[in-house]
Computed example of a mutant assay.
Amino acid sequence: MPVHRPGSPRPRRAFLAGALIAVCALVPITPASAAESPDATASATAGTTTNTPTTPARGTARMGMGVAAHDGQDGLPTGTRAAQTEGVDVASYQGNVSWTTLWNSGVRWSYNKASEGTYYTNPYFSQQYTGAYGVGMIRGAYHFATPDTTSGATQANYFVDHGGGWSADGRTLPGTLDIEWNPYGDTCYGKSTSGMVSWIRDFLNQYKARTGRNAVIYTSTTWWSQCTGNYAGFSANPLWIARYASTAGTLPAGWSTYTMWQYTSSGPTVGDHDKFNGALDRVQALAKG
Score class of each variant (00 low, 15 high):
Ala19Leu: 15
Leu20His: 04
Leu20Arg: 10
Leu20Glu: 12
Leu20Trp: 03
Leu20Pro: 00
Ile21Asn: 01
Ile21Met: 11
Ile21Val: 10
Ile21His: 00
Ala22Cys: 14
Val23Gln: 09
Val23Cys: 14
Val23His: 08
Val23Arg: 06
Cys24Glu: 04
Cys24Gln: 04
Cys24Asp: 03
Ala25His: 01
Ala25Met: 12
Leu26Cys: 06
Leu26Ser: 00
Leu26Met: 07
Val27Met: 07
Val27Lys: 04
Val27His: 02
Pro28Phe: 02
Ile29Gly: 05
Thr30Pro: 01
Pro31Asp: 14
Pro31Met: 07
Ala32Asp: 14
Ala32Pro: 07
Ser33Cys: 08
Ser33Pro: 07
Ser33Lys: 10
Ser33Glu: 14
Ala34Trp: 15
Ala34Gln: 13
Ala34Cys: 13
Ala34Phe: 15
Ala35Asp: 15
Ala35Arg: 13
Ala35Phe: 09
Ala35Gly: 11
Glu36Asp: 14
Glu36Gln: 13
Ser37Gly: 12
Ser37Ala: 13
Asp39Ser: 12
Asp39Cys: 11
Asp39Glu: 05
Asp39Thr: 12
Asp39Met: 10
Ala40Glu: 12
Ala40Tyr: 06
Ala40Leu: 08
Thr41Glu: 12
Thr41Asp: 12
Thr41Ser: 12
Ala42Ser: 09
Ala42Leu: 13
Ala42Tyr: 00
Ala42Met: 02
Ser43Leu: 02
Ser43Asp: 05
Ser43Arg: 03
Ser43Trp: 00
Ser43Val: 05
Ser43Glu: 03
Ala44Asn: 11
Ala44Tyr: 06
Ala44Val: 13
Thr45Leu: 13
Thr45Gln: 15
Thr45Pro: 03
Ala46Gly: 05
Gly47Lys: 07
Gly47Ser: 06
Thr48His: 02
Thr48Trp: 04
Thr48Leu: 09
Thr50Asn: 10
Thr50Tyr: 07
Thr50Gln: 11
Thr50Pro: 01
Asn51Asp: 05
Asn51Ile: 08
Thr52Lys: 05
Thr52Ser: 14
Thr52Ile: 02
Pro53Arg: 11
Pro53Gln: 10
Thr54Ala: 14
Thr54Asp: 09
Thr55Pro: 01
Thr55Leu: 09
Pro56Ala: 02
Pro56Tyr: 00
Pro56Leu: 01
Ala57Cys: 01
Ala57Arg: 01
Arg58Cys: 10
Arg58Ala: 10
Arg58His: 12
Arg58Ile: 09
Gly59Leu: 02
Gly59Glu: 00
Thr60Phe: 03
Ala61Leu: 01
Ala61Asn: 08
Ala61Phe: 00
Ala61Gln: 01
Arg62Thr: 05
Arg62Ile: 03
Arg62Val: 03
Arg62Gln: 00
Arg62Trp: 12
Arg62Met: 01
Met63Asn: 10
Met63Trp: 11
Gly64Cys: 08
Gly64Ile: 01
Met65His: 06
Met65Val: 15
Gly66Asn: 09
Gly66Gln: 05
Gly66Cys: 04
Gly66Tyr: 03
Val67Cys: 12
Val67Glu: 10
Ala68Trp: 10
Ala68Lys: 14
